[in-house]
Each structure stands twice: as structure tokens, then as C-alpha cells.
Write a protein that binds this DNA or RNA. Structure first.
Length: 491
RNA sequence: CGGGGAGUGGCUCAGCCUGGUAGAGCACCUGGUUCGGGACCAGGGGGUCGUAGGUUCAAAUCCUAUCUCCCCGACCA
């Protein structure tokens, strides 16, 4: 039962995604600025919800926010060899200002390790200054060949954390803490998106990092989406920018740094992981509007009675922390509103009409199917709907929202499990990556990895932190392997 | 950035081949009847046909350039 104007997923997944973005009114194309989008209010509200959830966790783990300039001297980028090489093809440069050519061009930040490194070198003096735990919310720009709304735009919004540590162990601890306690915790609990946490291979790691940890999520077409990364930068940037400190013995030591980020791409992940052919589906924890109330009336007298009832019914919702909206528009039929709010992904709909006033009930309809709420033929619909008493409604809504949150996570996890395959040879891998993730014992080289990518379009998404243990036979080289890798096509 | 497709009211598109006063459906506005799963009738508003240049008495239509979007590839959060 696809909505008007929504291409079914099975027909064209890419078009479906674009239809959701447009239909749910999340973004507009900034067609006058190639590759950029306008975050419309509903899209930006999702970003604000993501920011809130992450910012709370970033601060709870001891970090503070700050802000560095958008423009970075071009020479800064050149100081770390791998870093320049990695980002050079993607940077935009400012060469002129005030009508004059600049002596040294600036680049528009593609990420801020370099400029922050410069200042960290000034700020860090002693072991007592460490760890230095900072984060900034910012926009960055990376010139993209093939942009897609939220998933890959030339300018995007993100947070980037940058920390300095006295030794490798502390930097490593930080890198993993962010991955587990900030990123995966947020994405799994608030976005209802199960992720696989792992290590990037040399080929896939951040340019200039010692190692990169990541979390990978599965989209409904079986492809992987990198939902966040956390880098142990080793001493690479510290050495390039001279970040050093006096240790307890008054010896100068190069420091160790980390950086980590998640971006507005998460909105794309949210859409592609949860939504259906009827439109967007937003997990209740994240939803800017969790419940929409649709009043039903035929005339002014009914309208007055119904609105009074709606006021009474919703009176205790706000104090209970339920985020809701009452759709009072009177030029649209209820049926139209149902479809519209489903398209926009609101988790729960409550209908209040004259019959409900009489029976002290309301109709309640979850955005996605729930075991305890069945399709209600009496309501003329094929969609799940239940009539429940007004008494104790706030409690029931709160618990239903929690139930929906769990259902969404479970549903996404089940989908991932059903689309994850084991491969013990190359043919099995080729077959598996057509519809999902492939787990396989891996002892190949970087060259092997590149060859596999050329031949199959799939990459090693990560070496999962959770390993089966023991040894296996590499599916590609036939050698003894001590680790399992996840292969998939990626966004 | 290479290959392919497309830009005409807010949306989906027709008109272009064969140049001659810009159309439809949906959406929007007004009024009325409706209203528990995408209402109906009547009236109305809205488009320098992506942009720039050229050909022509005359260009949405033909030519050139350019921008943007979509699909496929190489690059990436």
C-alpha cells in the first residue's frame, strides 16, 4: 500500500530514498549550490535530536565544546603526509578575498585535525594539562563527485571530537570509549539502529590515523553504512604540529591524539534503515513529534466538543514528557491526515471523535505493526488500530512508545541477521554481498582487498571487535586466519 | 570527473520531431456541501518554458555554451 508519490523499495531503492526525503519534507535541494541541501524544519529537527543525544553523552564522558575557524591555512593540511594525500582531492580553496589574491590560500575545513593541532600545541605544556578533551559542532566541506541528500553532500553537519593524551594506552582507551559509550550507545538506544563495531583495515582507515574504529549499520537494501568513526591518531598529528608535554620527570614527550566524528549522514541511515513504502519511520526516542492527535468532527458544535475533549485528554501529556502535536486543520479530511502523518514518520497517532467522547475512548494507531494492536476492520482500514479507554491513556502511550522503540530495534536487528552470511570461499562471498553482509575468515593483504573490491564492488567494512576466537581458513588466500572480517557494498 | 537520461506553475508531466498568442491532472485561494483511511461541486490565482548567447519576421520548439538534478562508474562521513 504505497503512498502516492512514493516509489516502492522493491521497485527502485534509490528513488524510494529520494521520495522519502521529499515526501516527509526533510530537505530541499540547494540547486544553486551543487551538491548541497537545505535542511528543512523537519529534517533539521531530526538533526537537533541527534545533536542533543550525542552532546549529552559527549559531555557525560568529560568533554567540553569549543569552536575553531572554518578556514584553515593550506599549509596546515600539508604537514601530515597521509592526511594531505587523503583529503587533497576533496578540498575547496579560498584564494581571493576583498578583491585581492591571498598570499596563502585557505582551505575550507574538510575536518579540523590540523588547525586544532596547531592550537593544541600552544595549549599543552605539562602532563597536568592532559588529557585535553574537546569537541566541536561544525559544518565541513568535502567536494563530492556524486552527492545524495544527507548521505553524501558537499557541505555537511557533524561533530568532531579532538583529544590529547599522555600515552598510547590513554588515547586508545578514549578512542574505544567514544565508540562504545557515545556512538554505539546513542545509535542503538535512541536511533534503534543495531551496529557492528570494528576496526577499519589499513585501506579504509582515516588518512593520518594509526587506526580507525567504526560502527557499521545495515540498510534495507543490504548495503553497509558507516555510522561513525573514532580514530587513534597515534603521534602522527602531535609530531606534525609539535604537541608535546613535560612528563613527571621533566622530560619532553610527544603527545598522543584522537579524533572522532559522526555526521548528518545519520539522518540518511535513519531513513534507509527504518522507513517503509508508506514513508518515513522515526524511532520514538528521536522523534520531534511522538504522537499526533487527529480530532474528528463534522461541524462547529462537534468541533468544539471534540477539541475540549482533546484538551482534557492531553492535559497530562506534556508533564509526562510526551512530545505531541494536535492537528486542528479543518480543511482536510481525517483520512488525508492519517496518510500525511504516516509519510512524516510520527510513531503514534491518536484519533478523537464524537464516538470516543461518548464511549470515553480514543483510537490509537502505531506507525508500524505491533503484536498487541491488530488491523482493525471495523475502522475501515487495513492498518493496525485499537480503541482504548481514555482512562490511563498517558501511561499506555508512554509504554507503547517504548514498545515501538524496541520493535524498531528488534526489527532492524532481525533484518541484519537474516541478511548476514558466512562465506568459506570466494563464490559464497560474491553471492552474499548481493543481499547483505558477509562474515569470512580473512588473512589477505591490502592488495587482495583491493582486488576483491575491483571484482565485486564490496569492501571490508570492518574487522569486528567481537571475534569468534580460534583460527579459520581465509576464504580468499586459503591461509590460516586469526580474524573474521565483514564484507559488504557500502554507501 | 567519464558514460547515459532529464530540466515547461508547488508536484507529475504533455507540447518540441514539422517554429506562429503556454496546456492537463494534482496542489493552492474563495464559497458551499462534506469529514472515523487520501471528499465533492462551482468559481479563481499562479509559469520571462534552467540560464546566457545565436539563427529567424517570429523560439518552449532549431543551433552553441553553461548550470542543476537523476541513474551507472571511479572518490568519500
Amino acid at each position: 500500500m504505497a503512498k502516492e508519490g512514493i516509489t516502492p523499495r522493491a521497485q527502485d531503492y534509490a528513488q524510494w530514498y529520494l521520495d522519502i526525503v521529499r515526501g516527509a519534507d526533510l530537505a530541499d535541494y540547494a540547486e544553486v549550490v551543487r551538491g548541497c541541501i537545505v535542511f528543512k524544519p523537519t529534517g533539521y529537527a531530526l538533526w537537533e535530536a541527534i545533536q542533543r543525544g550525542l552532546d549529552d553523552r559527549i559531555k557525560a564522558t568529560g568533554h567540553v565544546n569549543f569552536y575553531f575557524p572554518l578556514l584553515i591555512p593550506k599549509s596546515f593540511l600539508m604537514k601530515e603526509a597521509e592526511h594531505v594525500e587523503g583529503f587533497a582531492p576533496q578540498v575547496a580553496e579560498v584564494t581571493h578575498a576583498a578583491g585581492e589574491k591571498l598570499a596563502e590560500p585557505y582551505v575550507i575545513r574538510p575536518t579540523s585535525e590540523t588547525i586544532i593541532g596547531y592550537f593544541y600545541a600552544k595549549w599543552v605544556r605539562s602532563w597536568r594539562d592532559l588529557p585535553l578533551l574537546g569537541n566541536q559542532w561544525a559544518n565541513v566541506m568535502r567536494w563530492e563527485m556524486r552527492p545524495r541528500p544527507f548521505l553524501r553532500t558537499t557541505e555537511f553537519l557533524w561533530q568532531e571530537g579532538h583529544t590529547v593524551h599522555a600515552d598510547h594506552e590513554d588515547a586508545e582507551r578514549e578512542t574505544l570509549k567514544i565508540l562504545h559509550e557515545v556512538y554505539a550507545d546513542f545509535v542503538e538506544k535512541e536511533m534503534a539502529l543495531p551496529v557492528i563495531k570494528g576496526l577499519k583495515t589499513e585501506k579504509e582507515k582515516f588518512p593520518g590515523a594509526l587506526r580507525t574504529y567504526c560502527m557499521e549499520a545495515m540498510m534495507q537494501d543490504g548495503r553497509a553504512l558507516q555510522a561513525g568513526t573514532s580514530h587513534n591518531l597515534g603521534q602522527n598529528f602531535a609530531k606534525a604540529f609539535g604537541i608535546q608535554y613535560s612528563d613527571r620527570n621533566n622530560q619532553m614527550q610527544p603527545a598522543w591524539t584522537t579524533s572522532w566524528g559522526v555526521s548528518s549522514r545519520l539522518i540518511g541511515a535513519l531513513i534507509m534503515a527504518h522507513s517503509d513504502d508508506d514513508g518515513l519511520v522515526i524511532p520514538p526516542h528521536l522523534a520531534p513529534v511522538q504522537v499526533v492527535v487527529v480530532p474528528i468532527f463534522k461541524n462547529d458544535a462537534e468541533r468544539a466538543a471534540v477539541m475540549a475533549a482533546v484538551q482534557a485528554i492531553t492535559a497530562d501529556w506534556r508533564p509526562r514528557g510526551i512530545r505531541f502535536h494536535i492537528d486542528e486543520r479543518d480543511h482536510l479530511t481525517p483520512g488525508f491526515k492519517y496518510n500525511e502523518w504516516e509519510l512524516k514518520g510520527v510513531p503514534l497517532r491518536v484519533e478523537v471523535g464524537p464516538k470516543d467522547i461518548e464511549k470515553k475512548s480514543v483510537a490509537i494507531a502505531p506507525r508500524i505493526a505491533q503484536d498487541n494492536i491488530n488491523a482493525n476492520a471495523a475502522a475501515g482500514g487495513r492498518k493496525p488500530k485499537a480503541f482504548v479507554p481514555q482512562q490511563g491513556l498517558a501511561d499506555q502511550i508512554s509504554s507503547l512508545l517504548e514498545q515501538l522503540q524496541r520493535t524498531m530495534y528488534d526489527r532492524a536487528l532481525r533484518f541484519r541477521n537474516e541478511h548476514t552470511f558466512e562465506a568459506s570461499n570466494y563464490d559464497e562471498l560474491k553471492q552474499g554481498i548481493e543481499s547483505g553482509f558477509v562474515r569470512a575468515w580473512w588473512a589477505g593483504s591490502r592488495d587482495d582487498e583491493e582486488r576483491i573490491q575491483e571484482e565485486t564492488k564490496a569492501t571490508i567494512r570492518c574487522i569486528p571487535l567481537e571475534q569468534p576466537g580460534g583460527k579459520g581458513k581465509c576464504f580468499y588466500t586459503g591461509e590460516e586466519a586469526s580474524q573474521v572480517a565483514i564484507f559488504a557494498k557500502a554507501y
